[in-house]
Amino acid sequence: MVRIEYLKRQIARAERLAKAILDRQTADRLQAYAAECRAELSELTLKTAA
């Protein structure tokens, strides 16, 4: 459960920073990181539900 909460916070933080930052490359990297966290969160959620 700790990892799930961590990933949720990281997703929110990365998306918030991506919206606020002016550098397109950095914003894209932050969005990609958020997508990676979302994928891991999805896997963990499925494992804990099973």
Score class of each variant (00 low, 15 high):
Y6L: 11
S42C: 01
Y33A: 11
I11D: 01
E5C: 00
V2W: 05
S42F: 02
T26Q: 11
I11N: 09
T26F: 00
A39V: 04
E43F: 13
C37F: 04
A12F: 06
E15L: 15
Q10T: 09
I4G: 01
R9C: 02
K19H: 09
L41H: 01
D23R: 09
R13V: 13
L30S: 07
A20F: 00
R29K: 13
C37T: 01
L41T: 02
L22Q: 06
L44T: 01
I21G: 13
L30H: 07
E15M: 15
A35L: 07
L7W: 03
K19E: 15
A14W: 13
L41W: 03
C37E: 02
K19M: 10
A20L: 09
A18H: 03
K47L: 15
D23Y: 08
Y6K: 09
L22E: 10
D23M: 08
Y6M: 06
E36T: 02
A49N: 05
L30K: 07
L41C: 01
I4L: 12
R29A: 12
A18W: 06
E43T: 11
L44A: 04
Q10L: 05
A14K: 14
M1C: 03
A50P: 08
L22R: 11
I21L: 15
A18V: 09
L30I: 07
L44S: 00
K47W: 08
E36K: 13
Q10Y: 00
E43Y: 06
A49L: 14
A50G: 13
R13M: 14
A27H: 09
L7C: 04
R3F: 00
A35N: 07
K8Y: 06
R29Q: 11
T48N: 07
K19F: 02
K19S: 15
Q10E: 12
R38I: 03
R29I: 00
L7K: 05
A12M: 09
R13E: 15
Q31T: 08
A34P: 02
I11C: 05
A35S: 09
A34Y: 10
T45D: 09
A50W: 05
A12Y: 10
R24M: 05
E15W: 14
S42T: 10
Q10W: 01
E43V: 13
R24C: 00
R38M: 03
V2M: 05
T45E: 15
E43W: 09
D28S: 06
S42D: 11
Y6Q: 09
A12V: 12
A32I: 01
A27Y: 05
A39G: 04
A27T: 10
R3Q: 12
M1P: 03
A20S: 03
L30E: 07
L46R: 15
A34Q: 08
L22P: 00
